[in-house]
Amino acid sequence: MSRAKLKLLKIISLISALGIAPGIAPIANAANVTVVIGGLGGSEAFAEKFDNYATAIADEAKRIASAETDVILLHGSAAKKEIITALFDALSTRTDINSFNAYFIGHGSFDGRSYKFNIPGPDINDTELLELLNKVKAQQQLIVAATSSSGALLEVIDTGDQTVGQRVLITATKNGREKTAVLFPEYLVEALTTPAADTDKNESITALEVFNYANSAVEGYYETEKLLAPEHPRMQGENAESFELARYGALLAARDQVPEELLATRETLANQVSTLRSRKDDIDEDEYFDTLQDLMLQLSDVQSQIDAASEQSEN
C-alpha cells in the first residue's frame, strides 16, 4: 500500500471515529453541526491555551447539540491540513445541516496578501479556507476566526453570498496587520460559558451576544490597562442573533418538555417588546413605559408557565 493511501485510510478512520461517515446518506432531522479547530501553539503555553479554549467551545456546543457527533473537535496533532480537508469533504456530503458553526482557534498570519491559519504541517490559507467552508451546505453558517491577523478574512469570506446560505463571520482583529497574539478567544470562551453574556436573559446565548461580550471585554481590557489595543474584533453578516451557541438554566435542562406554543407565545411577546422599543423615541415616555409594563407582565406570566413545565419535567 502506498504511503498516500495509508494516510487517507487513517484520516477516514479518524473522521469515522469522530462520528462522520463519509458518503453516508443524509438523515431526516435538521442538525446543527459545530467544528472546532485548535491550531498550532508554537510554545507550550500557547498550545495548552488553544487546546483548552477549543475543548471548552466544543464542550459547550455538545451541551446543546442534538447528537454529540455533531460536534467535531480537531486539535493538537489532529489539526492537520489533510485531516481538516477530509473533514470538510465529509461534511460536504451532508444535506441535513441547518446551522454550521466553525471555530478556528490559534495563531494566524498575514503576509500582506494572504491569511494563513497556523496548524501542524502546511498551514491553511484564506482561499483554501473559503473553499472548505463553501463545501458545507447549511442554511446558515457561522465562522469564528479567533486568531491573530484573522481580520484579513473579512475581505475574503463574502457574508453576502446567499448561495452558501446565510453567513456570519467573526474575527479577532480588524485586518491582517493586527498580528500579535490575541486575547479574543479567552473572552469568547468566557462568553460561551457564563450567563453574563446572555443580555436578554432568555437562557440562550447567541452569536451576537457572544461577539458583543467578547468585543466589549477586549476593549475594556486594553482601555483599563491604558495599552494601545493590538486587536479589534469584528463581526460581518446579518442575523447573528439567530445562531444559538450555548444554553443554560432551565432551558438547557428541559427545553424539549416545554410546549411549543408557550415558546411561540413568548417569542411573539418578545417581538412586540422589540417593536415597541424601536418606536421608543416617537412615543410619550410614560405611555411607552406603561405599554412596556403591560407586555412585560404578560411575558412574565408566560415565563412562569414555561418554568412550571420545565420543573414538572424535572420531577
Binding site: D198, D200, E203, R266, V273, R277, L292, Q303
Partner: peptide, 9 residues
Amino acid sequence: ALEYAPFFR
C-alpha cells in the same frame, strides 16, 4: 432592565 432583557426572570 426588562427593555434590555425581556426574559430576565
